[in-house]
Design a protein around this nucleic acid. Structure first.
Lengths: 157, 157
DNA sequence: CTAGAAGTTGAAGTCAACTTCAAGTCAAGG
DNA sequence: CCTTGACTTGAAGTTGACTTCAACTTCTAG
């Protein structure tokens, strides 16, 4: 084992290597997704492990997780030891299901659209695309990655 | 033909029948997606055709269009006559491609994930999920319905 | 005619995920 | 030692799609 103390990274370097903006990296630290040591002068110095965490964050958000979800997943990592491949694998396996669901939902939407194209209806009462199920109102706030009604069983029946 | 002048709807009624909140309906009018007559006292009175427009708006946003895109599509409708089935069909046919693309992109993501689950890498350099193509930086602002890099040919090579 | 439900407005708030800004302070090569 | 580029902070701004609020006004059933 040789000394690792020189291998600490500045925000700028982390930014360059990860492709995230420095502002995003600071934001992530503030939000508790990353942690960093500080120099005497108060500057951040990141452990190289931060790069893997950032890769995870990017991957997760590509899959459509919110930062809150990402934080939750990151917190489930062992804090004592450095996470292993298996640890990361376990987390990302979880996404597989999520992606499957999203794909299934989009396909359902497309198939519904096909039938609508046939009829040109777009009726509020009958069209699956404009009014699937009976969920008339209650579209909440928040980023619409996929409409909830497609991925959830039943809001309230 | 009997008189149609009594068949105008208040916002409240439109809300009830469409499932949109009254605030959303007013917002849509302000944004130029809907139009309404006014009573002497200044209240909105909507033509029944508004329900179809709202169905279209809902359908389009389920597919992932922004309101700007929806407005653009609505403006391409004939303004002189009442839009026919064929007019609506033409618009929604356009979505089919979009959905196909989105589905393909998600499937690509899932397949990439499958290979990553195998290796547990999540490397910034090699992993397709965390770093597809070479697009390291430049994730812009805006709602991430699907990551652009998945649906676009090449940002700049 | 009147009570009360429903309508009106503009301005401001919300949420997520960041970015931008101002006004500095720190670190490192020459 | 000094210059210069990189770093610091908290606060405020951004985008999209609405919602919420306050302070009225209008409609309509009885």
């Amino acid at each position: 084992m040789r000394s690792v103390s020189e291998e600490l990274l500045t925000v700028g370097e982390v930014a360059r290597r990860s492709g995230f903006a420095t502002s995003a990296i600071r934001f992530y630290e503030r939000s508790g997704l990353l942690s960093a040591q500080r120099t005497g002068g108060g500057q951040r110095r990141f452990d190289r492990g931060v790069l893997r965490r950032l890769a995870f964050i990017r991957a997760a958000s590509n899959v459509g997780l919110t930062l809150d979800e990402v934080r939750a997943e990151l917190e489930s990592l062992p804090s004592a030891r450095t996470p292993t491949k298996a640890d990361w694998t376990k987390l990302s396996r979880h996404w597989r299901t999520r992606l499957d669901d999203e794909i299934a939902a989009l396909i359902a939407l497309r198939d519904g659209l096909d039938s609508c194209i046939g009829c040109g209806c777009l009726s509020l009462q009958r069209c699956r695309i404009s009014n699937p199920g009976d969920v008339a109102a209650n579209f909440g706030t928040g980023a619409v990655y996929l409409p909830d009604w497609l991925t959830e069983p039943h809001p309230e029946s």
